[in-house]
């Protein structure tokens, strides 16, 4: 007896239906994403390599410490020396764009989940699905809806990278101690004040862990997204594979690793405050300046991180 459930056909039909009936909506999404992605890329690319390097070194010095700032300097010089500067900036721009959009969408979803058990129950399995589907699967509908290029690559990256920040925002807010919440209420907080003055700041270390994970996933996805034309370091790796050029593939891979370490350390530092006591005096100088410059793509990240700055000093 033959027994077939045609899920694949159903999904294809759904994709066709969306393409035929919601093209305007898709175009709107594409326009917004393209705008953010181009803006970020231009903001990074307009700087000469030594300026962006200097900014990253200062950021490393301020957030992590002098040893790490030396690593940053060496890593950036390596990228320039390998002739992969353009690709690296491109990938960085894509990662920052995808992360920015994932946070703008994901953090409110996480907050909503933390306040509503039913919503949590509904969203959980969707997050599970988003995290466990092989990343390549996202490329197909993304390419079908948005064609080839930066936009579908960014969208596939957003979908793949969003779950951690949603999960950890939800978790972080739920883990805020009952007495802190009670203290907020007992002193007359409104719902919004409770969220903005108690729950969000206290959940921030956990939320930042989510942001960090989202950035890491975005970086790994951006490489895969080069298969539908997202460009950047992924392209270098892909070309290396296609030509069986081990050296080229390795160089591209090294660029990705360098970016990963930089982004990881710097974003992690926002989760538990600065450790560079020696340079803490720089904080006051760069507290306003570098946040505006260094984080051109992730405005909200800098804003969220600010309450954590004073924590350890």
């Amino acid at each position: 007896m033959e027994f077939n459930i045609e899920i694949g056909d159903g999904v294809s039909a759904a994709v066709d239906y969306i393409r035929n009936n919601f093209q305007d909506g898709l175009d709107g999404i594409a326009t917004v994403i393209e705008w953010v992605a181009d803006g970020t890329f231009i903001a990074l690319d307009i700087m000469p390599w030594w300026l962006l390097t200097a900014l990253l070194v200062v950021l490393s010095l301020w957030r992590v410490g002098w040893k790490f700032s030396l690593f940053t300097l060496g890593a950036m010089l390596l990228v320039v020396g390998m002739g992969l500067w353009e690709e690296t900036v491109n990938t960085l721009a894509l990662v920052l764009t995808a992360t920015f959009i994932a946070l703008v969408v994901g953090i409110p979803i996480g907050i909503a989940m933390s306040r509503n058990d039913t919503l949590e129950t509904l969203v959980r399995p969707i997050l599970d699905l988003m995290q466990t589907l092989p990343p390549f699967v996202y490329l197909i509908p993304a390419a079908m809806f948005f064609g080839l290029g930066k936009v579908p690559g960014t969208i596939a990256t957003i979908v793949f990278a969003m779950p951690p920040v949603v999960r950890l925002t939800n978790l972080g807010i739920r883990q805020v101690s009952e007495e802190n919440v009670e203290a907020g209420l007992a002193f007359g907080c409104t719902d919004w004040q409770l969220l903005s003055k108690v729950q969000f700041p206290l959940a921030l270390p956990t939320i930042m862990a989510g942001v960090n994970q989202t950035i890491m996933l975005a970086l790994s996805m951006v490489v895969i997204a080069s298969m539908i034309g997202a460009g950047g370091l992924g392209n270098t790796v892909l070309t290396g594979i296609q030509r069986l050029d081990v050296g080229l593939g390795f160089e591209g891979g090294l660029g990705v690793v360098v970016l990963a370490i930089l982004l990881d350390r710097i974003t992690q530092s926002f989760g538990h405050g600065a450790t560079g006591g020696l340079f803490s005096f720089l904080k006051s100088v760069f507290a306003t300046g570098s946040r505006a410059e260094g984080h051109s793509g992730t405005r909200d990240e800098a804003k969220e991180a600010s309450p954590a700055h004073g924590r350890n000093g």
Binding site: E179, E182, A186, V198, L202, R311
Partner: peptide
């Protein structure tokens, strides 16, 4: 106003 057993201060 209220005072709590575990202090419930805002660490940030």
């Amino acid at each position: 106003s209220m005072v709590f057993q575990s202090f419930a201060l805002m660490p940030h």
